[in-house]
Write a protein that binds this DNA or RNA. Structure first.
Lengths: 262, 262
DNA sequence: TAATTTTGTCTCTTACAAGAGACGAGTGTA
DNA sequence: TACACTCGTCTCTTGTAAGAGACAAAATTA
């Protein structure tokens, strides 16, 4: 498995020296733009992905010509282009689950007033695929496309249900087990959490990503036993036992509705 | 409207025989998937983009690993992947016009009951960026991402406003001037249409794409004189003079609202 | 004003990716 | 049973794209 942790932690920057395949450079460029979330000059881009300037210019030109990237009006900085949007819409069209899931998440956050999210695994990483903000005055951080270590989340515990311990170990780096507050999770505990979540059919985590929220999640199945996605609600940590229970019920209900009976 | 001409017309489309750069192959693959609009086997894909099988396997593996493509559960066919969706959402986030335009189009079709679209130029081609179907019993064909020759549309006449005749000539192939019913448009007439549309500030075409509809379009400006997009309504060709007038008024209004005053 | 950095383009070399083709393992069909 | 496919993987060769670096022009700085 050469691909392995490519994106993951180490991102060891395979000793810059060697000559890189153009396509890989392009993939890095796209990923880099995804993290910066805004247009960037070509020179900086070259630095950012640690690629030679001349190469970067060439590749960027190709991508701009193809419409995958667009040049800002200043004629220097670039960002994602319309074509990526169109391809993205194609993806949505071809993906019932995503389409219905987005809808359901929007409904859920409107009905409950809480922040709601649809989450999936994306090349072995936890990804917020769609988020709807809810009506609370303070912003609960969560944006579409955000990637977070699996062990930090309730959804992560559900998404890994059914995997062998070895597989789980492969997907979780040591750094991932260190929570934002510095505490270190034991892998065995995490594995146990996953097993438990699998049985109960939902998962709640409190104060993991930050100290003020808890996260309620329910699994969406694409086939019996296969968790394809999760829906989750992010609520204040002091939400009452009772309301939490209600929300979980609602959440499980909606998630079940999404699960294909195909 | 299969795209048929895609291969023939615009892009250079060199007789690919010789050795091709990997990135170009990838771009062709993406474009091919965009036209097929569904998952396809790797072997067929290789045929479709006219690339060697071994190369195609290699590239597809890279793309799947990167998440730009996803393998269907049958383990053979591939289609667009989550990452493209995420990048696409990034594009939307970074693009006020698109975000507001989508909203406005949805509003418009809900209010009028007619099919409404947001259109833009995409690497020199007319593209329906977002469409909302309207409530009429019969389906008016129009899907997000669809690409149509510029001269067939009302929007096309607005999008080219302000360009020199030579530039227009460059963007329009001979085939583009042949309407679906076989009639051939004269380039001069088309250029004249464009000039007229520019002055009147809207455009109506009747029975061009098909014999049963007419198309009303209004320009969205990103800067004085620079048409960045158009909004349009597709209505039955026998829509009364009066209602047509009302709709155009509404359309121009909304399009103006979209135009940035930045 | 000169000094410094950044930008976009070009040229040339060689490391290496694209491609041809062979192979064995499936899958159908006569 | 043969026959004719397609599928996924591998190996080897060679054409060529990635990259180093030089350059002028533009933009910053002092």
């Amino acid at each position: 498995m050469q691909d392995g942790n490519a994106s993951a932690v180490s991102a060891g920057e395979k000793i810059s020296g060697s000559r890189e395949k153009g396509l890989n450079r392009v993939l890095e460029i796209l990923e880099f733009l995804h993290t910066t979330q805004r247009a960037i000059g070509i020179g900086d881009l070259a630095k950012g992905v640690n690629a030679p300037r001349s190469t970067t210019y060439t590749l960027v030109r190709s991508l701009v010509d193809a419409g995958l990237l667009e040049m800002e009006s200043d004629g220097n900085r670039v960002y994602f282009g319309k074509k990526l949007y169109l391809y993205g819409m194609d993806y949505v069209r071809g993906n019932d689950l995503l389409r219905r899931g987005r809808q359901e998440v929007d409904n859920l956050s409107r009905e409950t007033g809480e922040t709601s999210e649809l989450c999936m695994l994306q090349s072995g990483r936890y990804t917020i695929v769609h988020a709807s903000p809810g009506t609370r005055p303070f912003r609960i951080s969560s944006a579409t496309g955000l990637q977070i270590p699996l062990p930090w989340t309730a959804s992560g515990r559900l998404l890994l249900a059914g995997l062998e311990k070895a597989e789980i170990e492969d997907m979780v780096s040591d750094d991932d087990l260190v929570l934002p507050d510095g505490r270190k999770l034991r892998l065995d505990d995490f594995v146990a959490d996953i097993a438990k979540a699998r049985i109960t059919g939902y998962c709640v985590t409190s104060g993991l990503v930050d100290a003020y929220t808890k996260c309620l999640a329910a699994p969406v199945f694409s086939a019996p036993g296969k968790v394809e996605a999760t829906m989750c609600l992010v609520v204040p940590i002091d939400t009452s036992e009772e309301r939490t229970g209600e929300l979980i019920g609602l959440l499980r209900n909606r998630a079940a509705k999404l699960s294909t009976v195909a």
